[in-house]
């Protein structure tokens, strides 16, 4: 396993584009800390975002993983191009001739995806821990380390997303088209969602439930469901909402069922990549 990972890292290490994108990605992850610096100080209105409770444990785990997941597109480019490049440089052929099996080839890519997801998770964990230590109102150990399942969900979310990218890279063989295909797929899912809303608009049991009951099985939707938006959970937002008569009763927790769906998609993507590679003549 380590051998396959070092092979892939050797390929990435010397690739300038991949290196720059990875650095930007990790810099952006760190930049979450900059949110702490958001301060308005206009005469009587004093607003300091860090003091609104967004960095309170354990809420910070939810908030930071949600924000960090937005930056995953930078790594997606790295992952799609590391796959598509093997086709455009024809090095895939050379790798196989040199004695890498097709299975090992896919595994080396998959291990790299796992490594990227893991390092990202670790990074978010450390950044959040530091931010929380500085700004959180609660500092008991039991509170700090509660709700860590958001980090796990973050890891699974990246894993599923990058596996999807890997699969599209193999399927389409061109980085730009593979990324475009991902966007097209996102549009397709949105269209299906819209169509379902229209179909179920008069259903008695509730339109939302019916639509989500189906949509939760789609790859991108299931990944999006892993970490729900954290904003309406924020104390300040809640109090404002209740003043204007809105009441959020939403389940923000990470659902095990959802994680299972994403893991199944990951397995499907990786296995299909392997099946595709096995079937093709190079």
């Amino acid at each position: 396993m380590l051998r396959l990972l070092t092979i892939e890292l050797h390929k990435l290490k010397y690739n300038r584009a991949s290196k720059v994108l990875s650095i930007i990605y990790f810099a952006l992850l760190t930049s979450i800390a900059l949110i702490a610096a958001i301060k308005f100080d206009i005469g009587p209105i004093k607003f300091h975002l860090a003091e609104q409770g967004i960095f309170n444990f354990p809420y910070i785990w939810h908030f930071n993983t949600y924000i960090a997941a937005i930056f995953k597109f930078f790594l997606l480019l790295v992952i799609v191009s590391m796959m598509a490049n093997e086709y455009s440089y024809k090095t895939l052929k050379q790798n196989l001739i040199d004695g890498l099996s097709k299975k090992e080839f896919i595994l080396s890519k998959f291990y790299t995806v796992i490594a990227f997801a893991f390092v990202s998770t670790l990074f978010v964990f450390i950044v959040s821990l530091i931010l929380g230590a500085v700004y959180s109102d609660f500092n008991e150990i039991s509170i700090i380390f509660s709700d860590l399942d958001y980090l796990f969900a973050f890891f699974i979310k990246l894993l599923g997303f990058f596996s999807f990218g890997l699969f599209l890279g193999i399927l389409i063989k061109r980085s730009a088209f593979a990324v475009a295909a991902m966007i097209v797929w996102l549009i397709v899912e949105s269209l299906i969602k819209g169509y379902l809303y229209w179909t179920f608009r008069n259903i008695k049991t509730g339109t939302d439930e019916a639509v989500n009951g189906i949509m939760q099985f789609f790859p991108l939707e299931s990944m999006a469901n892993l970490i729900k938006e954290p904003f309406t959970r924020l104390g300040a937002v809640k109090s404002v909402a209740s003043q204007i008569g809105e009441n959020f009763t939403k389940d923000y927790s990470v659902s095990l069922f959802n994680i299972t769906i994403v893991l199944i998609w990951t397995a499907i993507f990786i296995y299909s990549s392997y099946a595709l590679l096995k079937k093709r003549d190079l």
Partner: peptide
């Protein structure tokens, strides 16, 4: 086989 294939970078 055929043309030499290496990583150009």
């Amino acid at each position: 086989i055929e043309r030499p294939n290496f990583y150009p970078y």
